[in-house]
Computed example of a mutant assay.
Amino acid sequence: MASTTDTKNYKFNHSMLRVKDPKESVKFYSFLGMSLLKKLEFPDAKFDLYFLGFDSPKAVSAGNNLWDREGLIELTHNYGTENDPEYKINNGNVEPHRGFGHTCVSVDNLQAACARLEEAGYKFQKKLTDGRMRHIAFVLDPDGYWVELIGQKPVEETEGVTTTDLETYRMNHTMLRVKDAEKSLAFYRDLLGMTLFRTHEAPAAAFNLYFLGYPGASAAPGAGVGPPAEREGLLELTWNYGTEKDEAFSYHNGNAEPQGFGHICVSVDNLEAACARLEGLNVAWKKRLTDGRMKNVAFVLDPDGYWVELVQNERFTGKANF
């Protein structure tokens, strides 16, 4: 393996969420069409990790090794929380602990997908018919995390169609609120090598949305990289105007109490070289490779203090990380 690193090989691998009861959470995401790809157990440390993603023959990353994918969800279960009546997750959307906003799944038929979830008894933060925005919905997972649902086609084209094909679903994006858009864009573009695919400006509502991701292997023909809604593994940054001017303003990173969202993860071609490159760019570290017992993961901090995990893509080494 070469001793260099190229951000063109990087992938936005997963988003980590802490959960109270893994059985209920896995059931929910499986109902959304995801497969449990791997479970990592750490009984000595009293936690388990569940990695879920879309893995049908129609999925973008179908059949790839765990770290050679984009758009995964990592569920972290700390033993005993399922039996603790006082334990509650911070979903990132309640003051004063806002920060992480939601994950998003794009679907072939938005109306039918929403009807299926509603019939199964899952609650919604926002139904299609709520408010003025009739082209998005938010379903709640068992811990109250928001999962946005968007259509891969305009809702007008799927009106009256009652079927939905789970094999066409994509884990489209993860949304984080950021204080200073320019600082965050510089971090994700210049340091982590992401591309800014789309900007949505909403001056009347005083916010902008920025969608970033890695072109990489998913740019291959037929890999579902047409319109943004057909992609997987995007990062949405939400900037509310004026926050950058308030020195006292900050977002909750999900890892301070009360906890919830944990981190996003980027898989790289050469972990040691990637970390050395970032060291040279003076990033802020939460955990270097040499820190602690786990020598195969590192964590850098983005401008808002969100944790970004770095892990080796096994395709470049031919050996397992865990």
Rank of each mutant, 00 (worst) to 15 (best):
Y10E: 02
S15F: 07
M16K: 05
K20M: 06
E24A: 14
F31H: 12
M34W: 04
F42R: 10
F42Q: 12
F42D: 10
Y50D: 05
F54T: 00
F54A: 00
A59F: 08
A59Y: 10
W67S: 15
G71N: 06
L75E: 07
G92F: 06
S106H: 01
V107S: 04
N109G: 11
L117H: 01
F124E: 04
Q125M: 10
K126C: 08
L128M: 07
T129Q: 13
L140S: 14
Y145H: 06
V147L: 13
V147C: 11
E157V: 07
G160A: 10
R170L: 09
M171K: 00
L176I: 10
L176Q: 11
E182Q: 06
K183D: 05
L185S: 07
G193N: 12
H200I: 07
H200L: 06
A205V: 12
A206R: 15
N208F: 02
L209H: 14
F211I: 00
L212S: 01
S218Y: 05
S218M: 14
A220I: 08
A223P: 06
E232K: 00
G233L: 00
G233N: 04
E236N: 08
F249E: 12
F249D: 06
E257L: 09
P258F: 05
Q259M: 13
H263N: 09
I264H: 01
S267T: 12
V268E: 10
N282Q: 12
K286A: 15
T290G: 12
K295P: 02
K295C: 02
N296R: 13
N313F: 04
F316E: 05
F316H: 09
F316I: 08
